[in-house]
């Protein structure tokens, strides 16, 4: 994999008044962490600056960050997004990460910079609930339009029925399960 710490350093240097720090420095994939307000600017610089020219979007992924207490209670800490960009000549890559708060997580959309960003963002909105400001089309993509909830969150509880169809079934083999014998 083509991640190098030098590219990350250069990116941090070139976005310079904006603060960015590199985490996971010694691992195989250093991540440049920025704050949500400056994400769009950083990505714009990463794409357009002639020394960087990261014009290929590989991936946008989202995660729900939680901490589990000893009793098993899940407390949400926020969300984290990861943008993987590559150069189109030698396909070396840089990874930019954002941390979002727990309540009303939102970040600016980058779907006018990269054409494929819209579908990635729709998937993150659909499954995690992160809102992308100024997106051209933010609708659910995998789930039906009238679904309630964001399933990929760690604390997602399914509703008991969807449009009249129950989401759980009575366990017909309950009598013979090992736990009940």
């Amino acid at each position: 994999m083509k991640y190098s710490i030098d590219i990350c350093d250069k990116l941090v240097q070139l976005v310079s008044p904006v603060s960015a720090e590199i985490i996971q420095r010694e691992s195989k994939m250093p991540i440049v962490k920025v704050s949500a307000q400056v994400l769009r600017k950083v990505i714009q610089i990463a794409m357009s600056n002639p020394e960087l020219k990261f014009n290929f979007l590989n991936n946008i992924s989202g995660t729900h960050l939680t901490e589990t207490s000893e009793e098993g209670e899940i407390k949400s800490r926020g969300f984290s997004l990861l943008y993987v960009l590559s150069r189109s000549d030698d396909f070396s890559s840089v990874v930019i990460g954002v941390d979002l708060p727990d309540l009303n997580p939102s970040v600016d959309s980058v779907d006018d910079i990269f054409g494929s960003a819209n579908w990635f963002e729709r998937e993150i909105y659909d499954l995690l609930g992160v809102v992308f400001n100024d997106s051209c089309d933010l609708r659910r993509i995998m789930l039906p339009d009238d679904w309630v909830g964001h399933p990929l969150r760690k604390d997602f509880q399914e509703k008991s029925s969807y449009n009249g169809i129950p989401t759980t079934r009575e366990d017909e083999l309950a009598a013979v399960r090992v736990d009940n014998l």
């Binding site: 994999m1 996971q24 691992s27 195989k28 994939m29 991540i31 590989n58 991936n59 992924s61 990861l82 993987v84 990874v95």
Partner: peptide, 18 residues
């Protein structure tokens, strides 16, 4: 602890696991 995005060339394009 940590994260990694690794990509390979699948027949339909780039297959990446994060």
């Amino acid at each position: 602890e940590g994260e990694l995005y690794h990509r390979t060339e699948a027949p339909r394009g780039e297959l990446g696991f994060h």
